[in-house]
Design a binder for these strands. Structure first.
Length: 271
DNA sequence: CGTGTGCCCTGACAGC
DNA sequence: TGCTGTCAGGGCACAC
């Protein structure tokens, strides 16, 4: 169930075992996920040393000493299992080092694995079109004002657009809009400067809080059974249909559909 | 161009 | 117990 905080947690967890290690064996249990696996993936990875791991938006990157980076996306249901005790039907890619085994498990197969020249990562089409990292210095109220100018689409759908901000998903858009007290149906071009000034720190805070919670579950990540422990955040709106707003305004959380996906919000405090 | 819709896939759960 | 329908944290192709 990966959004940015889960991908960040995953990358940090993987790095503890994989960074600096030599990949001894790679096994693909099927030819593809969303896309076919790169044809030379196994050949390039086998024998390579991992020089580092990083994250861009919801993508995790495994950098190799062969000027190539393996880029994984966890889709809706992907996760890495470290040292699993038993195989899973949906373990699609297995990586082995001298000390560990890593299984990329993704039942719905909405994820992907790509391989790109490390020097050309910024030019990789999926990255080239992306907006700023929400936790980086380039996400500012000014950036949002310019990117949303004239947009008649709802602010909710615009924030899910990776070209405007890279890495926000359904949960954290709902949560950030609640924190910033912005109605999800509001036309993006009409969101005020005052609201945008609240929205930027709201986005940062909710992501940072979740990463901290995810970070606390890194202990679970390293459990002998290899199960990935997801953070357990208490959401303010996500999935809370009919429950009372945590702001104390007496509002009942409402669920609507936008772009075919659910949105939750408080009709009292979000305007 | 911007915007809206449907689909990719499996599993969990509610209701009958 | 099994069936059916709905929904799920994402992204893309396609139609207008």
């Amino acid at each position: 169930m990966p959004e940015l905080p889960e991908v960040e947690t995953t990358v940090r967890g993987l790095a503890r075992y994989l960074d600096g290690a030599r990949i001894e064996r790679v096994v693909l249990n099927r030819p593809d996920l969303r896309r076919p696996f790169p044809p030379d993936l196994v050949q390039v990875m086998t024998g390579a040393r991992v020089t580092g791991l990083s994250r861009r938006a919801k993508y995790g990157l495994i950098h190799l000493d062969r000027a190539q980076s393996v880029i994984f996306h966890l889709g809706m249901s992907g996760r890495w299992r470290i040292d699993p005790e038993a195989p899973d039907t949906h373990d699609h890619m297995i990586i082995e080092t001298a000390s560990n085994r890593f299984a990329l498990c993704d039942p719905r197969r909405f994820g992907s694995v790509d391989m790109v020249d490390t020097g050309a990562l910024d030019a990789w089409p999926q990255f080239a079109a992306m907006g700023p990292e929400p936790l980086g210095p380039d996400l500012t109220p000014q950036h949002l004002k310019a990117a949303l100018k004239g947009k008649t689409q709802s602010i909710k759908l615009c924030l899910l657009d990776q070209r405007i901000v890279a890495g926000l998903g359904n949960i954290y858009v709902c949560e950030a809009l609640w924190r910033a007290r912005i109605h999800p149906m509001k036309k993006a071009g009409k969101v005020t400067r005052t609201q945008l000034a609240r929205l930027v720190p709201a986005i940062r805070d909710v992501l940072e809080t979740s990463i901290r919670d995810g970070g606390s579950s890194l202990r679970d990540y390293a459990r002998p059974d290899g199960e990935l422990g997801y953070f357990a955040t208490r959401f303010d709106v996500y999935g809370r249909t009919g429950e009372v707003c945590h702001r104390g305004d007496g509002g009942a959380i409402r669920r609507i559909t936008q772009g075919g996906r659910s949105t939750w919000y408080c009709p009292v405090c979000q305007r």
